[in-house]
Design a protein around this nucleic acid. Structure first.
Length: 390
RNA sequence: GUGAUCGUAGCUCAGUUCGGUUAGAGCGCCUGGUUGUGGUCCAGGAGGUCGCGGGUUCGAAUCCCGUCGGUCACCCCA
């Protein structure tokens, strides 16, 4: 038996129903909100992510699927979506401000577990170009509406991490603080001290909690402009009755973020999505000078948090005579009525079972020219008018 | 990268402790019959490299080593 590649998935059965439900909701909602759907390649040059996500980040150092193609190019399977969209924007829409949406597979080489896979799907939004607080607000408002519709009770955590230079300064202070307190830190956190100081704040190791609680707070190192922007965003959110929780420890894993960062967290404490502002990404990539703000949801995490949507067909076409069945099909097709059928001509008994398993409401029997309501067991003579009344 | 646990029919699992005929059950599937208050019921049938590779043994689903995969946790993240 050839087994499937570790951490990949066959999205099938109930999961396929959930996947399509989420995808349909995403597409419908955000095309209405004016986001342009875009599909960028799954393969990108490795360089794109080295620069964007950050060369010392966990994703780049350990988690990328890398390959050399026959032309000797260093390629990777994309670990996230934002960098590709910024690359696209620079090439085709450089002077414009565009709202984008995307939906598709991402790849990260990690050990799989609940809510984490090596190939997984992200649904994301980006606004790229000339960005202001209204853009930030839109991303949060629109994506919050989406996730609340799927998972009621989801909460918004929000933070500002200041400009890149604020952060550099803060990291220096933080480094000195942790350096002075290494005796009270867990080994994991000590390992992060040199290259990933900021990440220590994310630690949920109880050994670290005391030190982290007393650590310098980033809010003291944030420049006035960033502070004002953040405050005015919070004000807009409040005026729009959008509830949020400020979380000063929320730093996120990608280097390109600045100022705004936020996460959506369910009542089960699953982070189903997150995002933030990336004003310097285009410059980091040497693609010009424009800004961006975006959000990405983990589709599998949503799938694991929602009940199974109703997906049953309404009608089932049963029969043993192909000519009669086809006559009925034609009639139903003409009126744009969808119906389910058995995959082949089995005996009636098997077709009844199939219909029952699919939870259909009405059974159209072409052998007897009847339509039966499977809930009430009421049988009527078949007539297209009867169906059109439903 | 680290650790725990699991892998036997399409599915859920028994059998592994303590090696021993032809590897079982339920559900599902197929065929025929039965049923017209149609989904029931009856009979028969198909279906397994016991994840894979090696080792020990007269003999391995069972013991040993390795490996691949699932699940879960750590790390990290969506």
């Amino acid at each position: 038996m050839i087994e499937q590649v570790k951490g990949t998935q066959n999205i099938s059965g109930d999961n396929a129903i959930k996947y399509l439900y989420i995808q349909n909701l995403f597409n419908n909602k955000f095309s209405d909100y004016g986001y342009q759907y875009i599909q960028t390649p799954l393969l990108e040059y490795k360089e794109l992510f080295d620069k964007s996500i950050g060369e010392s980040s966990e994703i780049v150092t350990k988690q990328m699927y890398e390959l050399i193609d026959k032309g000797g190019r260093e390629l990777v399977l994309r670990p996230e979506g934002t960098s590709s969209i910024v690359r696209y924007h620079a090439e085709f829409n450089k002077d414009l401000t565009i709202k984008y949406s995307y939906f598709g597979s991402m790849f990260r080489y990690e050990n799989p577990q609940k809510n984490r896979y090596r190939e997984f799907n992200q649904a994301g939004l980006e606004i790229v170009g000339l960005i202001d607080t209204y853009s930030d607000f839109q991303i949060i408002n629109d994506s919050f509406n989406f996730i609340k519709e799927l998972i009621p009770g989801t909460k918004l955590n929000i933070n500002t991490i200041g400009s890149i230079s604020d952060r550099e300064q803060f990291i220096k202070v933080l480094y000195e603080y942790f350096k002075a307190n290494t005796d009270k830190l867990s080994q994991d956190s000590i390992d992060k001290l040199e290259n990933n100081t900021l990440r220590i704040l994310d630690s949920n190791n109880p050994d670290d909690s005391e030190v982290i609680k007393n650590a310098p707070n980033i809010s003291e190192y944030i420049n006035d402009n960033s502070k004002n922007n953040f405050d005015s965003l919070l004000e807009i959110l409040s005026n729009s009755d959008i509830e949020y929780q400020i979380d000063n420890a929320l730093v996120r894993g990608l280097d390109y973020y600045n100022d705004l960062t936020f996460e959506f967290i369910t009542s089960e404490n699953v982070v189903v999505g997150g995002g933030g502002r990336y004003d310097n990404l285009s410059e980091i990539l040497s693609l010009g000078k424009f800004n961006g703000v975006g959000v990405a949801f983990g589709v599998e995490r949503i799938m694991n948090s929602i009940p199974l949507p109703d997906n049953s067909s309404k009608y089932y076409l049963l029969g043993t005579d192909i000519n009669k069945i086809s006559k009925y099909s034609k009639e139903l097709d003409k009126h744009n009525i969808n119906y389910s059928k058995p995959p082949r001509l089995t005996k009636e008994n098997a077709q009844f079972k199939d219909a029952k398993n699919q939870n259909v409401l009405y059974l159209i029997n072409t052998d007897e020219d009847t339509i039966k309501n499977l809930i009430t067991n009421q049988i009527e003579k078949f007539n297209i008018e009867v169906i059109l009344e439903h």
